[in-house]
Amino acid sequence: MFGLGGSGEGVVSMTEREKERRLAPLRLIESYWHGLLGADGLAPLRSQIDPRGIESALEYAFLGERIAPMLAKLRVSGTHLNELMGLDMAGMPLSTLITPEDREQLGAAVSKLFSEGLEIRLRLVAEEGFGKGRLTGDMLLLPLRSDLGDMSRMIGGLVTHGRLGRTPRRFRIESISMRKPGQAPIMPAPLPAPVAAREPLLGLAESQAPYRTIRTPKAPRETGKRPPYLRLIISNDD
C-alpha cells in the first residue's frame, strides 16, 4: 500500500485494486445480466444475450445448458477457459474444470441455479504439481431461460489469478455462495446431499423431485434350483 502520511488518509490498497481489476469481467457479465432481468426478477432469455454487451469480458465468458438435474454442458466457451484446459471446452461438461472430488458440490449448486434461479459464485484453487504453481479463480454462474421459457440455460465467467503453467488446470472448490437476485448471499453449509447415482438424462426438462438416495436392489442368491421356466421333456416316439 502507498500512503501520504501516518494518519492513513490517502492510502491506496494495491491488493484491492488488483482484485477489482481481476474481477472486472465478472462484474461486467453480472451487471449486463441484471440489466436484462424482468421487473419481477425473472431470468433473461438466452436469445436476449448480445455478445456486444459484454465484449471486453468475452474471453472469460461462457454459455451453457442443462443436460441433467446436476449437470450442465458448455455451448460457447471463451478463450481463457480453453487455455486453462488445453482444449476447446465447447461441448464439454462444466464439471470438467473441477476436480473429481468436488464435482458433487458443483452439481448441487448447478441444480439450485436451474431450479430456483439463484446466482452462484465459487471461489476456486487450482491443483498444484510439477509445472503447476499457485493459481486461484473466481467463477460466476447466472441462470437464463430457453426460448420455451424453461430455466435450462446459463451464462457465466471464470477469471484466474496466477501463472497458468502446464495444462490442464482443474480447480478445487474453496467456497460457494448463492443468492436470489437483489438479495444478500446465502452461504450453503452444508450443500445439499448428493445423490448416490446419477439420474437418467432428462434433456432440457427440469426435475422438481427432491434429492433422494437411490439404492440398488440386491441380486438374488444362487439356490442351485432350476429356473421355473425350464422343463424336462421326454419323447417316446423313437
Rank of each mutant, 00 (worst) to 15 (best):
L74V: 13
G78F: 03
L84I: 09
R17K: 05
A109M: 03
I214M: 03
G117C: 10
M14N: 13
M85T: 02
G117N: 02
A189R: 15
P168D: 01
I29K: 01
E65N: 12
L164N: 11
E222V: 14
R179H: 08
M178T: 06
T216H: 06
A219R: 03
P93S: 01
L158P: 15
L26I: 08
G5R: 05
I214V: 10
G10P: 14
L118R: 09
K73N: 13
A72I: 07
R52I: 00
E222P: 09
T216M: 03
R66W: 05
A43L: 05
V195S: 07
R21A: 11
S31M: 04
E9K: 15
Y60R: 11
R166D: 02
P100H: 00
S13M: 01
L45Q: 05
T167Y: 04
R27C: 12
I176W: 10
R27V: 10
S7F: 07
T15G: 14
V110A: 12
G91W: 06
F2T: 12
D150V: 14
L71Q: 13
L97H: 09
D150R: 12
M1F: 04
R170D: 01
I120Y: 12
A219S: 00
L142R: 02
S207E: 01
S146V: 09
L230P: 06
G133W: 00
P69K: 02
I173Q: 14
A109P: 15
